[in-house]
Amino acid sequence: MTLLEADHVGFAYRGGKPVLEDVSLAVEPGRNVALVGESGAGKTTLLRLLLGLARPTSGVVKFDGQPLTRGRLRDYRRAAQAVFQDPYSSLDPRHTVGRIVAEPLRGLGLGADPARIADALDAVGLPADAASRYPHEFSGGQRQRIAIARAVVCHPRLLLADEPVSALDLTTRVRIVDLLSSLNVERNLTILLVSHDLGVVASLCQQTAVLERGRLVEQGDTASVLGAPSHPYTRKLLASVPRLPG
């Protein structure tokens, strides 16, 4: 059964041009999916729909095979969490790290057990004493770890990650990608990755969908989409990636 599914989803702002048109995408348990595209392609809008933060103007978003209704939102939130691009904007500067990581536990009424917070910090490779400190005391990469700890503290099955490494330095990027793939294995966490970095996509995701101007132009196994792209836009994207010489 699919974990999360967009079924012929469309979205438009009132009186505006459609941002998304007829997008169908399925996330199977255990298979990470990459959503690739450039700015303005509608990646972030699709992610908001998939997170239940906005409703599609046409089509449905399904969770565990059933339409995602208001009543099922709470169950969905326990199963699906998110990580954002900018770790400077995604952590409230006035909260301690412990309080930030505990937020889903409190919000979902699971009880903010300090042991679970310590466990989540440990899972992302941060010391337990980080809990009493403030976000500004950490570097960009460490902040992104804090954001990931918040996302996995309630043991979700699905992680929707919006460009989680594009604001980070190259060496930090590798470490965060490694962290995400270890969480994928150790915690049975399936990742839906929104990214424009094809190297990151290829390292982390088994499946890839390419979004161009609100439409999915190509999707399938990452190996075949990136190895033998059929759509011209995918080819252009691939040709644009700067490669290492030699």
Binding site: L51, L53, S90, R106
Partner: peptide, 26 residues
Amino acid sequence: ARDYITAARVAGVSWPRIVGTHVLPN
């Protein structure tokens, strides 16, 4: 407009609590 507000919504925090814990303190 900050991402921590979206994160709080995804974490299941209700709007009144978001106002109390994130908006007002900030």
